[in-house]
Every structure is written in structure tokens, then in C-alpha cells.
């Protein structure tokens, strides 16, 4: 076993899909481990070294959601869900349960590899710094100690709500934060599912940090699911 290679665990019961995912992953220089059932997946995470999990939700033994739940009890390993379930509800549910990313089948291997890179960077970042107080993404910088936001070295004035929203997304950069999670964090759990206030707040924030809100550089919309700040 080569220790320098990252280990990707592919949990998928369909052989053809498993094959091409593994091929793509290996081709990219990662180690590929295979699990066909949810139980195998959980055992693999427990007993072997795994850096990223690629998880299909429709498994023969237990539901993928339960696998996420189980793993999240004791591990922060990035989980990328690949699923044929295309409903937004299911996507948001998997993300809220602790999945880091979600790809709907059919997807291209380029897309999958890009998501794996993001996930691995996450792991590295988590290992490197104990506590980050400054987050820099492109020209955007968030100073959490001073509560300040800079865009291309110029300070941007933010309302408290805009600041909370931006820092929530930046802390989870690379990950989709679901609409429900944002609303719960910013307005409290009793606020319900009214997305209008969030859309308005987001529009205000984008006008401060994006040159063209219809072609955002930083905050991407995952329609029907939530928002994500890109890392590169």
C-alpha cells in the first residue's frame, strides 16, 4: 500500500458504475477501495484508512442516509453522495444529515473528480490549522476576530445579517449549506421554511461582493438545495 496516495472508498452496488468511478479515481492517482453494501462501507471506515467516501444512497442492505448517520456519529470523513434520487428534498436531507456533497446520476467523471479534490482540500485544511480566524477565498477575506470583510483589499461594509450569512458559508466553503440550515442558523429554528427573506438577504450580499450577480464568482446557487462558496 502506498501511503502517499489518498484513499477513496467507493460504496456502490451497481458494478458498471463502480468500475468507471474506480477507473477515474485510480487514473487520477488515488487509491480506490470498494464496498458493495452499507455494512461493508461502515466496516471499511472503521478498520481502514479512508480519506473520502463516495456513497450511493440506494444500497442493497441499508439506506445510504443511515450509512451517513452512522459514520457521522464518530467520523468527519468527507462524504460525497452519488444518487439516482433526483428530488431536491432528498438532496437537502442527505446534506443536512452530514453529507458534504451531492451528485445526481448521470454525472460526468470530471465533475466527480472536481468534487473529490474539494473534499480532500477540506480534510487537509482541517488537519493544518487548529483555529482559523481569517478565511481567504480569491479576493474575498473574512476576518473573524475583527468582524470585517475585505474584497480585493478594500473593506466592505456589511449588515450583521449579511456578515452572519457570509461567515456561515465561508466556514463551510466548498460545501453546500442547505437553505433550511441557513434559515435555522440565521433566524432561529422557529422561523419555518420561508425562503423569501433569505433570497432578499442573499441578493443584498451578492451586490456587495459580486461584480455581476448573474455570474457570481464566490457564492454559487444550488437550485432547490442551498448555497456554496467555491474554494478556488
Amino acid at each position: 500500500m502506498n501511503d502517499t496516495k489518498e484513499n477513496i472508498l467507493v460504496v456502490e452496488d451497481d458494478m458498471q458504475i463502480r468500475n468507471f468511478i474506480c477507473y477515474s479515481v485510480r487514473n487520477e492517482g488515488y487509491n480506490c477501495k470498494i464496498a458493495v453494501t452499507g455494512t461493508q462501507a461502515i466496516n471499511a471506515v472503521l478498520n481502514e484508512s479512508v480519506d473520502v467516501i463516495i456513497l450511493d444512497l440506494g444500497l442493497p442492505d441499508i439506506d445510504g442516509i443511515d450509512v451517513i448517520n452512522e459514520i457521522r456519529q464518530w467520523s468527519e470523513i468527507p462524504i460525497i453522495v452519488v444518487s439516482a434520487r433526483d428530488q431536491d428534498k432528498e438532496k437537502a436531507y442527505a446534506l443536512d444529515m452530514g453529507a458534504d456533497d451531492y451528485l445526481t446520476k448521470p454525472f460526468s467523471s470530471t465533475e466527480l473528480l472536481a468534487r473529490i479534490r474539494v473534499a480532500l482540500r477540506h480534510v487537509k485544511r482541517r488537519g493544518n490549522s487548529i483555529k482559523q480566524t481569517v478565511i481567504q477565498v480569491g479576493g474575498l477575506r473574512l476576518d473573524m476576530d475583527k468582524h470585517l470583510v475585505f474584497l480585493d483589499e478594500k473593506e466592505v461594509h456589511m449588515t450583521p445579517m449579511e456578515y452572519s450569512l457570509l461567515s456561515l458559508l465561508l466556514k463551510n466553503r466548498g460545501k453546500v449549506v442547505t437553505t433550511a440550515a441557513i434559515i435555522k442558523e440565521l433566524w432561529g429554528p422557529g422561523y419555518g421554511q420561508d425562503t423569501q427573506a433569505l433570497r432578499t438577504l442573499m441578493a443584498g450580499l451578492r451586490r456587495k461582493i459580486e461584480l455581476n450577480p448573474a455570474k457570481p464568482r464566490y457564492i454559487m446557487t444550488e437550485i432547490g438545495v442551498g448555497y456554496r462558496i467555491v474554494e478556488e
Binding site: 458498471q16 458504475i17 439516482a84 446520476k105 460526468s108
Partner: peptide
């Protein structure tokens, strides 16, 4: 419909992924 959608997506992913693999 959900079942059909699911059952069509899986082989489509296989076809597309495998073809990508061949291309590479």
C-alpha cells in the same frame, strides 16, 4: 415515475461513465 426515473438514471450513468473511461 420515481422508480422509472431511478431505473433509467443508473444505466445512463453507466453508459456515460464507461464511455468517458474509453475516451480517456
Amino acid at each position: 415515475l420515481r422508480a422509472i426515473s431511478h431505473d433509467l438514471r443508473t444505466p445512463l450513468s453507466g453508459i456515460m461513465g464507461t464511455s468517458e473511461m474509453i475516451m480517456r
